[in-house]
Design a protein around this nucleic acid. Structure first.
Lengths: 334, 334
DNA sequence: CTGAAAGCGCTTACAG
DNA sequence: CTGAAAGCGCTTACAG
């Protein structure tokens, strides 16, 4: 292994001179030495040892991405996309990305500390543990899509409530009055709760409240589809709180002889790539995942540069993407 | 920050004693000291410094996952899934996963060396650079889905050729004779070439060779769909070398007024989650991504434990999953 | 079972 | 512009 010492010996200078050149502190070194040392670095293929650097300078150049769930959270295209963008952006800034799948929040601290992570970005629902995580780790922590009563925390999220409002509004505009909601993880995820609340509040305000038994939290999608089909009355419109849920629903309804949008109109949430390719193409609430990732990383580096800044959260906008999964019901004049 | 020294002072023992306890070398320490030291570790919330450990012991406990492409390679559900499984498995063994998106293979060495990665798993097409990467890095390197003329390299792949054979066989069995192939990255990816070769060889052997102009390498999918529709003759069956390609094709054909399977029968490759939910559900060649990830990680640790083992590659099996995207053509007896 | 010494490869802080 | 010294927090190798 080639070390600073090797370069120094070869160049006939001190280790410090080489260190300065490696770190581009060129104004502290004569041009002659810069040239000589760089040539030798090149020749010997010197690569700095990051762990030594981390130990002595107390800066690791590591950013951790903490993802909730240990059973392949990448099966979610949303997580996969966010992670992909985040890693790209971290790299582009010359930092290294360490990824951790976490179930037990106590693991978070262990991991962040042992590698001296300079900051962390969280994907998933950490709502309950945000306070504790923050107390244990005095580095910039960027949460995404979190809702928490903690006053000071940095969150990059979207306007989930508005998404629900838009979905309900679109159904109402198209003549729908009998609604159902399919909301995975409803009881644990405030994000899902917000989407559902936006939807239900809007429907109720228009005089068409969603009965509680029409709000389904799937145990699995097969079972939820059965429950949906078994609902009394004549539900014509279904709001699925995630696209993954919506896409599977289309296929499962089809298996039961029901068509979207003929039998059920459907609106999803997220605007994943596949939503455009389903049949029918899915009308959905779009969020811009690339933008969200960029905000998360930019915000993190913002705090890395100035840790005294006040905690500032970001709420990104959402919009309705109209495709083919909502049918218009023409009602007789009353 | 709490260090070994702090624990040692508090316990009235040497730093070495604490180090032994931390590393569970219990047979080298009296029970009395074990108990005392563990209690203090607990009380002070000691977390070992990984960079110090890496520097002094020359073992980092880091495994790098190198993924080809810098423009969000996670947009590919295949990559996302593999990465997810791989990270889970690396973690489960008490190692840390560092993820790097790479375009320039020279970056690989820089990254692996600077963090003293103990091993690496590669996703993507590194075929051309495998030899160089291996020469530069004397650690276990596990490639996936690679084809290379390098004699000694470890690859975890699937039987891509057989996948093509199965697809062609299924079409033939269902009465198809006029074929087209859509193969993204055909000219750069030997993996795709294998799939196509298996398909074309089988068709040709049955007397229904695929004309070269029927083998389409898409620039983008819109354009490829146009080219497919414009083909002379009466193509009835299309082999898409990836599911992503197949799913988009279904939707793009529909926009042009052509139905799958009525106008074109279609077989994909990979059996991604969404293949089951497309309309029609996609007949495809299945590979087991979880299994492939497991082999990759198991093989890596195998070599970590005994670096003298000979390079051994693994070829996993594939199978045809019949769904609804292939129609049977009944031909008049001749 | 226990501990003092040296060293991993780098940076910080200082003196010149 | 240059370099000698000390130290980051741990482990290795050795002596007892």
């Amino acid at each position: 292994m080639v070390t600073l010492k090797d370069i120094a010996r070869e160049a006939g200078v001190s280790v410090m001179m080489v260190s300065r050149v490696v770190n581009r502190r060129y104004n502290e070194v004569s041009q002659e030495n810069i040239d000589k040392i760089q040539a030798i670095i090149q020749k010997l293929g010197y690569i700095p040892d990051s762990s030594a650097r981390s130990l002595s300078s107390n800066s690791s150049k590591i950013i951790s991405v903490i993802i909730q769930g240990i059973d392949n959270p990448m099966a979610s295209p949303y997580n996969a996309n966010m992670l992909g963008h985040i890693i790209s952006l971290i790299q582009a800034r010359g930092y290294n990305a360490m990824v951790h799948f976490i179930d037990d929040y106590a693991e978070v601290t262990k991991h962040l500390r042992s590698w001296k992570s300079e900051g962390a970005i969280f994907l998933g629902t950490f709502d309950e543990n945000i306070r504790q995580i923050q107390e244990d780790n005095q580095i910039p922590l960027i949460f995404t899509d979190s809702y928490s009563s903690v006053r000071q925390f940095i969150n990059i999220g979207i306007d989930d409530y508005k998404g629900g409002v838009l979905a309900a509004g679109h159904f109402l505009k198209n003549g729908h009055r009998d609604f159902a909601v399919i909301a995975p993880h409803l009881h644990v995820s405030q994000l899902i709760q917000q989407r559902v609340a936006g939807f239900c509040d809007t429907a109720a305000r228009a005089g068409f409240a969603v009965p509680p038994e029409h709000i389904l939290e799937p145990y699995d999608f097969e079972e939820a589809t059965d429950r949906l089909c078994a609902l009394r009355g004549t539900v014509t419109a279904v709001f699925a709180a995630t696209d993954i849920c919506a896409i599977q629903l289309i296929s499962l309804l089809k298996k039961r002889g029901r068509q979207v949008p003929e039998d059920y109109s459907l609106i999803g949430f997220d605007n994943l790539l596949y939503s455009a390719f389903s049949t029918p193409a899915l009308t959905t609430i779009a969020q811009n995942i690339g933008q969200k990732a960029r905000y998360a990383v930019d915000t993190l580096f913002h705090y890395l540069e100035d840790s005294s800044l006040p905690a500032r959260s970001v709420v990104l906008d959402v919009e309705l993407i109209e495709r083919d999964s909502v049918k218009t019901i023409v009602r007789p004049q009353t």
